Amino acid sequence: MKRQWEIEDLIEHWMLSAWDLAQVGNKTGATRLGFAVLLKFFQREARFPTFKNDIPGNVITFVADQVDVPAEMYLQYAWQGRTIEYHRAEIRKLFDFRESTVADGEELKQWLVAEVLPLEHQEDVLREEAYVWFRRHHLEAPTSVLSELRSQKSFSDE
């Protein structure tokens, strides 16, 4: 994710719609802000951020202003535990996605080997193609798609 966002880009990609605000609902404080950030990130990426600091500060501030929570509260949002797991499940359900499985990863690997690798070998392009595949199948992509694929078996072994 890019680190610097111009105001036009923030408005285009991080502005909460009436529907988004309805999903945020009656959550308060850090929970309200954390959920809103996860929701917008998932809308953009069809996955969740790996780390809390994956979200640039100006994005957090922009979302915080919309949900009327001080941006500093984002630091209090628990990145592990029941709350974030519940939020992730809630967001997946909203978009009719599910967590990917090992079998899904194997299917992706076979697709990459058959359809993408004959034409492309650049890691960033392969990663983007993998994310497109996950989105098309309504699957939440693992946090690190290519490293997981690499750990299973090298592409060059195919």
Results as ranks from 00 to 15, higher is better:
residue 132 V to P: 05
residue 83 T to Q: 10
residue 149 L to N: 06
residue 129 E to G: 04
residue 90 E to G: 02
residue 44 R to F: 08
residue 131 Y to T: 09
residue 88 R to Y: 03
residue 93 K to S: 10
residue 63 V to G: 07
residue 21 L to C: 10
residue 117 L to P: 06
residue 64 A to I: 04
residue 53 N to I: 03
residue 83 T to H: 05
residue 32 R to A: 12
residue 10 L to Q: 01
residue 46 A to D: 09
residue 55 I to V: 15
residue 141 A to R: 08
residue 94 L to E: 06
residue 142 P to I: 01
residue 49 P to T: 13
residue 37 V to A: 01
residue 87 H to T: 11
residue 73 M to V: 06
residue 93 K to F: 03
residue 140 E to M: 11
residue 121 H to P: 08
residue 72 E to H: 05
residue 118 P to D: 00
residue 1 M to V: 10
residue 32 R to N: 04
residue 60 I to V: 15
residue 122 Q to M: 05
residue 39 L to M: 05
residue 95 F to P: 04
residue 143 T to E: 12
residue 30 A to D: 07
residue 109 K to I: 02
residue 74 Y to T: 01
residue 73 M to P: 01
residue 111 W to F: 15
residue 140 E to F: 00
residue 63 V to Y: 00
residue 34 G to A: 03
residue 27 K to F: 09
residue 148 E to H: 11
residue 153 K to G: 06
residue 9 D to R: 15
residue 136 R to Y: 09
residue 3 R to M: 07
residue 128 E to D: 12
residue 38 L to M: 03
residue 23 Q to A: 11
residue 33 L to C: 01
residue 94 L to R: 10
residue 80 Q to A: 09
residue 68 D to Q: 14
residue 117 L to E: 08
residue 128 E to K: 13
residue 85 E to I: 11
residue 149 L to V: 01
residue 135 R to S: 03
residue 155 F to N: 06
residue 1 M to D: 07
residue 64 A to L: 04
residue 135 R to D: 08
residue 109 K to E: 05
residue 74 Y to N: 07
residue 123 E to L: 09
residue 75 L to E: 15
residue 143 T to N: 08
residue 147 S to L: 10
residue 27 K to Y: 07
residue 76 Q to T: 11
residue 59 V to L: 12
residue 38 L to N: 10
residue 155 F to A: 00
residue 36 A to Y: 12
residue 7 I to M: 13
residue 86 Y to W: 13
residue 158 E to T: 08
residue 79 W to G: 06
residue 113 V to S: 09
residue 125 V to F: 03
residue 115 E to C: 15
residue 97 F to C: 05
residue 81 G to L: 14
residue 5 W to A: 12
residue 115 E to V: 14
residue 155 F to H: 03
residue 47 R to N: 04
residue 136 R to N: 12
residue 59 V to M: 01
residue 117 L to W: 13
residue 131 Y to M: 11
residue 33 L to D: 10
residue 110 Q to W: 02
residue 43 Q to H: 08
residue 30 A to T: 06
residue 40 K to F: 00
residue 78 A to T: 10
residue 44 R to S: 04
residue 3 R to V: 11
residue 48 F to Q: 04
residue 125 V to R: 01
residue 59 V to W: 10
residue 102 V to A: 14
residue 86 Y to S: 15
residue 118 P to I: 00
residue 146 L to A: 11
residue 92 R to K: 13
residue 144 S to A: 09
residue 122 Q to L: 10
residue 64 A to R: 04
residue 128 E to Y: 05
residue 154 S to Y: 00
residue 75 L to D: 13
residue 108 L to R: 10
residue 37 V to I: 14
residue 142 P to G: 08
residue 1 M to H: 07
residue 45 E to C: 05
residue 105 G to I: 00
residue 75 L to T: 15
residue 86 Y to K: 15
residue 139 L to W: 12
residue 54 D to A: 11
residue 150 R to F: 07
residue 75 L to P: 00
residue 83 T to A: 13
residue 127 R to D: 14
residue 104 D to R: 00
residue 136 R to V: 05
